[in-house]
Design a protein around this nucleic acid. Structure first.
Lengths: 132, 132
DNA sequence: ATCAGTGTATTATGCTTATAATACACTAAG
DNA sequence: CTTAGTGTATTATAAGCATAATACACTGAT
């Protein structure tokens, strides 16, 4: 099976956030953004493990927790599939709900260091291109 | 000694980020923002430990690492003091240099969750007013 | 049937993080 | 001197995180 270019992952080993949680977060975002739709298959455990240079069991832990949370489901012998949600909420709103907490944290930090709104936006514009 | 109202701390036990790192980050921000100036004393270890309901040694670890990093220094029997910087560069430029790493972290996070530049900026504009 | 590909269980090892309870050397104030 | 306040060292315990090496049951295609 070919790697799905729709879903790419990146982890930060210096952030202090556990790898399995970073993987979970990114999959949630991919689902919420519609990049991963209902019944889409996720990249395989070994595939992500190789891509991130991480232990397969670490990826499996992320998958298992997502399954427990009801976001994805196992198809034996095939892989993990995005679950059809009951309520089937609007993906866009769902995504914003996921992102809001992070942005609030970001804004809180900015205010904490006395950074004005436009100052923050300008600096983001400048730094955005530079970064990877 | 009275608690300094200039410096307040908050930690998230659900974020996965080690407590001692959250403390370090917030002190760095307080210094970078000018809320904590050169020769200012930090809140005592036991004070922060009580405020955050955390083990004193966890706070001590954050302080020790900040001292190793050259940001603060020990005054025996009295506490920890913000260190005078060697170069003592212009506060404004110095401040921008301090802020850049934080913004890079923010941008990194945004990219990690596949948030586009304009998307990020728009949402920041929207959320900025709401927040405190 | 064979083979490569799914997720996962198991066992072991090692590191990091956080807590608890003491104890020590030091300083400043009474 | 006594006392309360600094930071920190020590020892022990516990949990979480990540890795490594195997092994298993299952599926789909050859």
């Amino acid at each position: 099976m070919v790697l799905d270019p729709k879903t790419s992952f990146s982890i930060s080993t210096s952030s202090g956030v556990p790898i399995y949680r970073q993987i979970m977060d990114q999959i949630k975002i991919h689902i919420a953004s519609g990049r991963l739709k209902e019944n889409d298959f996720l990249p395989s455990v070994r595939q992500i493990a190789k891509e991130l240079e991480v232990n397969p069991m670490t990826v499996s832990k992320a998958y298992s927790l997502l399954e427990t949370a009801g976001r994805i489901e196992t198809v034996r012998g095939q892989g993990m599939r995005v679950r059809s949600v009951e309520g089937a909420a609007t993906p866009l709103q769902d995504r914003n709900e996921q992102i809001a907490p992070l942005l609030k944290e970001i804004i809180g930090k900015a205010k904490q260091i006395s950074l004005s709104k436009e100052e923050l936006i300008d600096t983001i514009r400048t730094l955005w291109e530079d970064q990877q």
